[in-house]
Design a protein around this nucleic acid. Structure first.
Lengths: 345, 345
DNA sequence: CTGAAAGCGCTTACAG
DNA sequence: CTGAAAGCGCTTACAG
């Protein structure tokens, strides 16, 4: 049962090398203090015994767990709080500092999550948190800030909330401009928008971006439909009348799942998606490549997002690294597929 | 920078309650040893100061991190090593014991992963591991077993590998029987199978299960197609000839993505999926509900899988809980959707 | 350059 | 019932 018995400790290495424990510690942390001979001897012992410093002891003395906390589960918005692809980038980014991620669950409400942060923080089980699903009227940043917990947020503060914490966001407006420009270049002018019910979440930037881009081309931005949730089924049901009555040349969607619903509804109505009507998604989620035709969409640069967020938390935890700027906005990338250029292209 | 300064320690609680530090420890761990009065006083102090024992100190004295390691990323098979839904269940299951998960990355090769396990284990950064993507000729269980690391595997050992470690698996054969029975009940007899190239991964059980179920109905199991990878595109390309030449009544697929490819190809050929030809998937992944029509599929009981695996690791780490049986096989559940009953149903 | 001392925050025996 | 002692595995000053 007690599988933890036979770990090599610093004591064993010291005995093997014929030095004191402090000298072994110095060999690991301040090798320049040792004579070449001693250093070589200690290193050999470390090698032979395959010694690694104990994580708990290290955390206790350094007051640093080398762990970052992140919640997984549904978010207050319609997306998972941390899609797998993003999680993967977090792990990669943290590994640059020999940090790892601890995942925990909780309900999507801010209050429950704050309780969770508090519980973990009081135990000093992590060095900080990343909030991967920042939203409007978000109570979490303030709490973390007030409690002096290192953290950084994916998603900009809204409703005039202060910029008193680090955040990074994707410029959805710039993304929507790419989309609309692309559709206009394909000769479409009657371009509708399908989004979620307004609620100050990220979706509103997507809607606003579409409207702005339309205006910049001198086009009317008056055909808009909203669904209650981010589901294929809801989009399908909600968009059918639009497709039939307004006869748009293209439908710009706030997500790939919504776009998949448009593809469904359009196909059922006998429209050729990518020819009769162009459809675009957002996120480059798995749904973008399971439809017929595949979806033109916008991909967020998760790698840069993860680097930024991890850099901040690690820095706030006292690890020496270049202090990143307090905030940053990055642009999504247009991924062109059949849903806007047709299958015969 | 040093945000970690103002944590409440056991010393502060002791001072506040006017007792020694051990007495505070006893109040937390062995309350029955204290007199009612002292206990109340200590508890009040804990409450007022919002004290929680330090995780690192606890880990150091108890030799238990209350952390389980799991790798995320691509697997040697065609699936992600731990889809988000499964990860969520892991987190829930671990929380029952006040355990959490640490995630780390690595390439999909066994050798790299073993290196990773070793690195983490030597530091005693976790109490054990869960392998969520056990496969044939899997070198990881042996290594972990030989090094006395607590672990449990999702996926049964193959190639006559010993049952010397805990594992749980989903009975794909039983699942395929449900699928074939369902199709036969819908009056179909010419039932084809679309799977992956044989490679001793889990996919082979799915193929074998289909063949067995066919035989049990006295049906020929001779129409089979294999793709190189688990992609919609590959399935689409690969299945077109089958659909055209063999004219099956139904296509049973080894995954939802493959099934989505069949839906694509079938629709392009003018076949009505769910009527002319029935299609089934496997996994109840997001892809299952983004196709038109939505896919009948098999869902694996991730909740029971997670409970089993966590119970084992936690038990091996010395936490008192009921020792689960060494191995277990659970059955998937048939989820019937339009792809086998038509949209007019 | 190397090691004896003290301490990180806690727990487990063990006296009193 | 309560507290003084020793220790978990390490590191950081600080003597020598």
């Amino acid at each position: 049962m007690d599988a933890q018995r036979d770990h090599t400790t610093i004591r064993a290495v010291a005995a093997r090398a014929g030095v004191s424990r402090q000298t072994v510690s110095n060999a690991v942390n301040s090798p320049e203090r040792l004579s070449a001979g001693t250093l070589a001897r200690v290193r050999e012992a470390i090698e032979e015994l395959d010694y690694r410093p104990d994580a708990a002891a290290l955390a206790l003395t350094s007051r640093r767990s080398r762990l970052i906390g992140i919640r997984i589960g549904h978010s207050a918005q319609r997306h998972p709080s941390a899609p797998e692809e993003l999680l993967r980038e977090f792990v990669r980014a943290a590994a640059r500092y020999d940090y790892r991620f601890v995942i925990f669950g909780s309900s999507p409400t801010d209050a429950d999550q704050i309780r969770g942060y508090g519980e973990i923080w009081r135990r000093r089980a992590v060095d900080g948190f990343i909030i991967s699903d920042g939203h409007a009227r978000d109570a979490r940043p303030r709490w973390l800030h007030d409690h002096k917990v290192p953290f950084a947020v994916f998603g900009r503060p809204r409703d005039g909330a202060g910029d008193d914490h680090p955040w990074i966001d994707v410029d959805a407006r710039a993304g929507m401009r790419l989309v609309v420009d692309h559709l206009v270049a394909r000769g479409r002018t009657r371009i509708a928008f399908l989004g979620w019910a307004p609620d100050a979440a990220g979706g509103d930037d997507r809607a606003a971006g579409w409207a702005e881009a339309m205006a910049s081309h001198g086009l009317d931005a008056d055909v808009t439909v909203r669904t209650a949730d981010d589901s294929v089924r809801a989009a399908d049901a909600r968009v059918e009348a639009l497709l039939r009555d307004s006869r748009p040349h293209a439908v710009v969607c706030a997500s790939d799942r919504l776009a998949a619903g448009v593809v469904r509804a359009g196909s059922r109505l006998g429209l050729s998606i990518g020819d009769d009507v162009l459809v675009t998604g957002y996120d480059d989620a798995p749904a973008a490549t399971t439809t017929i035709p595949e979806l033109t969409t916008l991909r967020e640069p998760f790698d840069r997002v993860a680097d930024f967020l991890v850099d901040h938390v690690v820095h706030a935890a006292g690890i020496a690294n270049e202090a990143p700027p307090r905030t940053r906005v990055v642009e999504p990338q247009l991924v062109v597929r059949e849903s806007t250029i047709g299958t015969r292209a």
